[in-house]
Nucleic acid binder design. Structure first.
Lengths: 116, 116
DNA sequence: TATAGCGGTATACTTTAGTATAGTAATAAC
DNA sequence: GTTATTACTATACTAAAGTATACCGCTATA
């Protein structure tokens, strides 16, 4: 299925595209994914990684990402407990999509600046 | 440049990705792009095409898309005037990105449902 | 003369997203 | 026993996004 076939199958098209948009929308989702892209991290580490995020937003977005199958949360029974967040394989594969978006963004900027 | 190289060149990465996100964000941009994907259309045609959009939002989003080099607005000197909106080449090439997003969305949904 | 279509704008409102600030329980270090 | 760290939650707020409703100037049609 492709975007150009939208006329033929609008429902699945809209749902799947929407799924993708949902996992990256909002101010903090991409920074969080970025922070977890190379290594699993703990709550406070992510917070230090993204200076301006409040714990409220980080908590909310991590829950959101977990619910959407993007992040795996593991609680370790240490004293005190520690919690680790890591991207799922599915989330890691989002990199390809982001590459495409990145590529298009660069090309588009060139097009616009050159007045085409 | 790729997403995995984010560490090496965060600024251009963030800007280009952000550009791409900006041209599709909000509730109405994709429906509008979808409406213009196969043919140029007039204001009222787009409105009929997207039943729940208000003229305020359509006007606002079209201006936004025009400013971002996604849409070309042509005024015809008929009586009364008529106005046509069409996608730029750059906007049309966004189809490839949307295809990737669509593909990932479908795969991700499968992954999540199968519990992987 | 009244009504409708075109391409919008104006004003006021609600809803959603994000921020600020403080506080929690548990433990450990000084 | 005071302070710090971890992993958050609670409450109250502001800002941004979107909605509802009405209206504009222009013209064509009934």
């Amino acid at each position: 299925m492709s975007f150009k076939e939208a006329k033929a199958c609008p429902i699945q098209f809209v749902l799947a595209l929407n799924d993708t948009l949902n996992v990256i929308n909002g101010k903090w989702k991409l920074p969080i994914i970025g922070s977890l892209l190379f290594e699993k991290r703990r709550f406070t580490e992510i917070q230090r990684n993204i200076p301006k995020i409040t714990p409220r937003m980080l908590s909310k977005e991590l829950k959101d990402l977990e619910m959407n199958g993007m992040v795996k949360r593991t609680v370790y029974d240490t004293i005190p407990i520690s919690v680790e967040y890591e991207l799922t394989d599915s989330a890691k594969s989002l990199g390809d999509v982001l590459d495409k978006m990145l590529e298009w963004g660069l090309q588009h900027r060139e097009n616009v600046l050159s007045g085409s």
